[in-house]
Structures are given as C-alpha cells and as structure tokens.
Write a protein that binds this DNA or RNA. Structure first.
Lengths: 130, 130
DNA sequence: TCGACAATTGACGTTTACGTAAACGTCAAT
DNA sequence: ATTGACGTTTACGTAAACGTCAATTGTCGA
C-alpha cells in the first residue's frame, strides 16, 4: 500500500471527482493548462494540479475559452517583475472584472424573468386543477 | 424625445445596435432563433425580434449554447396546455436556476480572487516605485 | 503466467458558431 | 453609366473542445 501522505492522484481519480473524461484532462495538458509529473509514462497529479483543474472547470462554467482560462491562471501564478507588466496585469484583471460583473447582471435579470415564468406556470397549473 | 418605436428595422440596424455581424443574425435565423418577416427577399425585424436578439446575446454572455438559448426562449413564449407539460417546464426552469446560481457563486469566488491578485500587484508596484 | 484492466499516444471525426468569399439584385447618388 | 451601400443565397473554411477508435504498453491479482 502506498503511503497516502503525498497527495498523488491518478487521472481517473480526477476524472471521477470532477466528472470529466480522462481525454479532456489530457487535452488540457496538451493546451498547457496542466503539467502533472510522470511516473514512467503515467501521469501523477498533485493537489496543486487538482486545484488547477478546479480553476479550469470553474472558468468553463463561466463560459471562458481555454486560452482565456490559461490567461487567468497565469495571473494567479505570475511573479511579474516589471512595472509595465504589472500595469498590464492590472488592466487584464479589470477587464475580467467588468466581464464578470456584466455576467452577474445578466444572471440577475434572467433569474427574475424565470421567476415570473414559473409563477405564471403555477397559476396556470392551479387553474387547471380545480 | 420621441424615440422612434419603429416597428421595422433592417438587418444592419440590428447589427449596429448590438454590435454583431449580419452573418451572425442570419445564422440565428437558420438555427430557428429568429423569424423576421420579409419584404420581398429582404428581412424586416420588428421590436419583438429585437428583444429576442437581446435575449440571445444575453444567453451567449452567460455561456449558453444556441440550442440552450432556444430552449430558454421557448420557455418565455410557451403557451403550455397540459399539466404534465407544465411540470416539465417548471423542472426546466429550476434546472436553469440552479445553473445560474452556480455561475453566480463562481463569479463571486473569482471576483474576490481577482481582488486579492490586484492588491498584490499594487503592493508590488508600490515597492518598485520607491 | 495469464488475462483483465488501466493508461498511453497518435490520428481522425464531430459539433458549435460563425467567417469568408463568390455571385448576384436594388436603388440612390454622382 | 457607374459607383457604392446594402441586401440576398449558396457554399466552403475554421477554431475550439473535445469524442472515438486503434494499437500498444505496463501492472496486478488469481
């Protein structure tokens, strides 16, 4: 039995935990979003890799493309030296924030609309049941 | 202050107002998301069409596929007769709501993370400027 | 040692959401 | 008469994000 001290996960572990195919996980690696270490040919995922995958999937749920997600993750892990680079990063961050706030607004609007529709359905249901 | 409630818009009117290509608008029609009336061969868009396009674009910003958007819009315009259909609709609505709430949560998390990153950038910037 | 099973690497296929011409009609202005 | 803006259809192209299959290679329990 392997000592579970070191958090090492197989590709199927990850695929099961997050309900994605192993093919997708390998694809993310091809696209440079994941860099698991290897034991021979096999991929071994650390907890950091797991967190990165979580970030990827969250980005997907938000409708970002993989390259956008790559950009976002690079923001997380960037250790930028130059001042100009920092300005650029901050601008990127603000862009994302604008996008996310727009989405939040879209969601609010859609939710209230859905509420209205459901209420109408319920009324119609009630009137059918008498 | 009479905003022209012009009931008839051209395809370029729409494309300019919402900053989408005419190609995209025609594509949405091909996919059954829009049904403008015709004057001869030319498409003429009513204000209802305009609202539908707005819904489509909002759906896109939320990361939905066109067929998902079609489903959502069909919820808006459905005149369901049967009780079973109504139950089905309500279930659909709840599904959407779950999805949107998940997205909202994702956004909150990402926003606070972005805040943290920007703060770090600012600190780094400040320390560089001395 | 055998066979089941997991994992790997290509390579090609598929869906979505349009882009990009090509080739043409219409009408107003120059 | 020509140009330009705007419109049309048909058709092929493409980038993204995987799915699917094939061939192969360990790996482990009975």
């Amino acid at each position: 039995m392997n000592a579970p001290m070191t958090e090492s996960l197989s590709i199927t572990d990850l695929s099961r935990e997050f309900d994605v195919t192993t093919r997708a996980i390998r694809f993310y690696e091809d696209e440079g979003l994941l860099h698991p270490r290897r034991q021979g040919r096999n991929r071994v995922y650390s907890n950091r890799d797991r967190v990165r995958l979580k970030l990827i999937l969250r980005g997907k749920r938000l409708g970002f493309t993989l390259s956008e997600i790559a950009e976002i993750i690079s923001l997380y892990h960037s250790e930028p030296g130059e001042s100009a680079q920092l300005d650029y990063f901050i601008e990127k961050i603000r862009e994302r924030r604008r996008q996310l706030l727009q989405q939040k607004d879209d969601i609010e609007v859609t939710l209230t609309e859905l509420d209205a529709i459901e209420r109408q359905c319920r009324e119609r249901l009630a009137s059918l049941k008498q």
